[in-house]
Structures are given as structure tokens and as C-alpha cells.
Write a protein that binds this DNA or RNA. Sequence first.
DNA 1: CGATCTGTTGACGGCAGTCAAGTCAAGTGG
DNA 2: CCACTTGACTTGACTGCCGTCAACAGATCG
Lengths: 240, 240
Amino acid sequence: MNTEDPLKLSRCASCLIRHRGICNALSDEELQQFKQIAYHRTYRPGEIILSSEENTDFFAAVHSGVVKLSKILMDGRQQVVGLLLPPDFLGRAFSKSNPYFAEAASEVELCCFPHAKFERMLEDFSSLKQRLLEQTLNELDSARDWMVWLGRKTAEERVASLFLMLAERWTEAERGQETGAQNRVIELHLKRDEMADFLGLTYETVCRQISSLKRKGVIQLSGTRRFSVPNVSALTKIAG
Amino acid sequence: MNTEDPLKLSRCASCLIRHRGICNALSDEELQQFKQIAYHRTYRPGEIILSSEENTDFFAAVHSGVVKLSKILMDGRQQVVGLLLPPDFLGRAFSKSNPYFAEAASEVELCCFPHAKFERMLEDFSSLKQRLLEQTLNELDSARDWMVWLGRKTAEERVASLFLMLAERWTEAERGQETGAQNRVIELHLKRDEMADFLGLTYETVCRQISSLKRKGVIQLSGTRRFSVPNVSALTKIAG
DNA sequence: CGATCTGTTGACGGCAGTCAAGTCAAGTGG
DNA sequence: CCACTTGACTTGACTGCCGTCAACAGATCG
């Protein structure tokens, strides 16, 4: 185990999320240690990553794709409580049990770390803990924004808010490109019923609201899971 | 400033939340340093502690009372996104601006720390940062539970969930007492319209659901802001 | 006592949920 | 190649929960 695997070493160095995720908090030296324990896993769309019953044995950074965090009531009602995009972090530190149900919403690649080893590194590298804290604070902020959607917004406002959020995340991720935000085609990743579980609605209502926004010329669909926003300001206004 | 204030020293030592709040993470020596910068503030019910526009110059631990965190849409719709009870922590670390509106829901006493000094102590005392991280993770968990309420539960279930949560927090805080949970009288702290903003409902709907639960014999009111739960299992069942 | 704030209850209407039918695209197998 | 199936999506008709509007009851206070 002391022989260095050149593939493993180069993988971190060329990692797409290297400069955005938690790894960014580490020095080169610390990173060396990090990659010794990291391993990758991939999931197909719809595949279950964690179920809330079983104990988790790993933490992970989302390397590519979208992970859906949800909670399910006994009668089957479901609420999505988080969407993880690269370079978000998956797993509940300092607790073996994970209260959520995690599912791959698209093709997903995770960079995983064994539970115990990762917690030890948290102790050793304070900048890593700092990074995790900041990420958790940001997740808390967006969870609370989301609560406003769920508690106080109408169906139309919620659907508009979702489209707006996806559009913003997209331009954020790809800023510096030449084409304007108007014509950019954005990937939805979610099915209608997943959007509904996200927004606290039924999928029929989501459908109707999307059709209505389309009729108003605020959004434009290409196929069923791609869209663009010809009128950003109108969308913003409707989103509230 | 080098003379020690005996009052200040004893205040931390006898502090009610000393062994539950973030201070618990500190050694006696570190606590010495801590109390040098801490000061208390009190607020009357309804008083505004932080408005989301202005920059925050302090962090604080809730020493007594209940603090309401909320967000407000431009048209006046409001959603409560957090309830802070002792020994919860108030303030957004690593960001000068605070995206929430904080209001005293009852008589409130805060133990405050200047912004810059507290962040410095976070750097120096890793156990403090650890404590803050754990608290943030717990807040994230409960925010997400709350999202399930808002997105997927009916009015009756939400009201029942709120009563259940308050009952559970109460027994948690006062465990070891002799009287059974059945007859314990629990303080609501919130007005009907505050409960409504909390639950994503109107205050009339909250009223109706409370009356209905009362008629069913699941809860019992003494006056308008105190209640007890004669039938805990029925309440749990209704809450979902 | 009147004024004001908080809470309760009723009548009514609308937004979103439920139930149901139907379209469209992709896949399967003869 | 075509009949059939399946899953995702769309749209319509109807229902019901909860929001809106309104009247009223209690409590508190000057």
C-alpha cells in the first residue's frame, strides 16, 4: 500500500472540481494524503445512493451529475429537500445515520471517502472543517429560501422560481461564455414528478404551470427536458 | 482593561446555558478569554433584533426566550424559517450580511460577541468551530424536516406537528421531572398569526385546526397560549 | 367606558389536488 | 416493418381544502 499509484495522483490534480470543492481547502501535501483514501463510484439515473434506514459508511463529493435528497412520509408522500450539484458534499458528519434518502437524478459520479478516515482528517486539517462549515451554512441558507417557496408561494411562482434558479446556476457555472443568457439552452435534469416533489405540488399542476409560462412566452421548451428563457425579467417578476 | 471584573467572571460560571451552548466547547482558560468580550442584551416581545438589510456587528447565543427568524416577500407575505431557543446561536458566520429578519417572540436575553473578535476566536479554538458546525448541521436537519411539513402536509397535520414539536422540546428540556407528559402545561410563546407564518397557513386556518384538535380531545388549552396533550399517541398519529 | 389587539367562527370562492382520458416517443418482440 | 407495451407528459372536468372577507367575542388598558 506504500507504492504510489500514478493514476490516483494524477486524478486529483486534474479533477474538475478540484478548485471548487472541499479539496480546494487543502495544501498539496494534505491533498496527497487525501487521495490515498479517495475512491470513485458511479450511479445510473434513478439509482439509490443512500436510504435513510441504513447506516452510511462513506462521505462523498459530487463530482458530476445531480443528486436528489428527499424525505418520505409513511403514506408515500415525498418531498425533495436538497439538490446536490458539483462540488457539493454528500453525507452527514458526526452522525452515523443519515436522515435522508439520496437518489441519482442523472448519471452521477461521486468521489468517496471512508467515514472514519474522513472524520479523522477533519480533526487534523482545520481548513477542511472550515470549508465544510461554510458549505453547510450555505446549504442552510438555501434550505430556508426554499421554505419560503413552499410556505408562501403560489404554484406559478414556485415553477418560475425553479426555472430561474436553474438558469442562474447555469450562467454562474459557465460565466465568461459569449452567448447571451437569453438563448442558452438549459438542462432540466428532473422529470415532471421530481419537479413536483421538489416544489410541493402534483406533477399535473407542474405541467399546467409550465404550459402556461410557455403560452405567455416567458420560457421556451426544446423537447421535454431542455428550456431557454427568452424573457428573463418577466420570469423574475413572476417568480416574486 | 486588565482588571478582572468579578461580576463578569461569575456570570459565565453560573450561566444557565453554560453546559449546553457553544461555551461548553471551551476550556476554563478559553472561557476566561471569552467572557472578556461577551456582553448581554435584552429585548421585549416583538422587538426587532436584526433586519435583513443592515449589516450585523455581533453574534449571539440565545440565553433565554424565543427568537423568530423570518423572510419577507415584497408584497408582505412572510415565512418563519427558524425558531431559536436557548442555547441556539444567532448570526451568520463568515458573511457580514444576514439574510434573515430576526425578531424577539418573547422576552429575550442574548449573550453577544463582537463580530470580528468572535471570528478570530473561531480560528483559534477549533473546538468552538466544531461546536458551531454541529449546531449548523442540526439546524439544517430541522430546516429540512420543516420543508416536508410545508410542502406535503395538510393544515391539520402541520398544526399537530407544531404542537408535538413544542411538547417534545419541552419534555427534552425538563426531563427528570416527576409529572407525566400528559398533564404538563406547555407554553406556546407564539401568537396565532406567528404560528401561521411558521406553518405556511393563514391565522384563521390555524384557529380552526386548533379548535378541531380541541374538539377531538387530542389537545387541551388553558387560556390562549398554553396547552397540554392528554392524548400524545393520537397527536402523533395526526401529525403523520 | 370605549379603544385596540387577539382570537373564534361562518360563508363563500378560487387555487391546486384528484381522477381520468389521451398524446407522444421509445422500446420490444413477432 | 408493424402491432403492442410502457413510461413520460399533457389536458380536461370536477372536487375540496384552504384562503378571503366579514362579523363577533374576550381580554387588556388607558
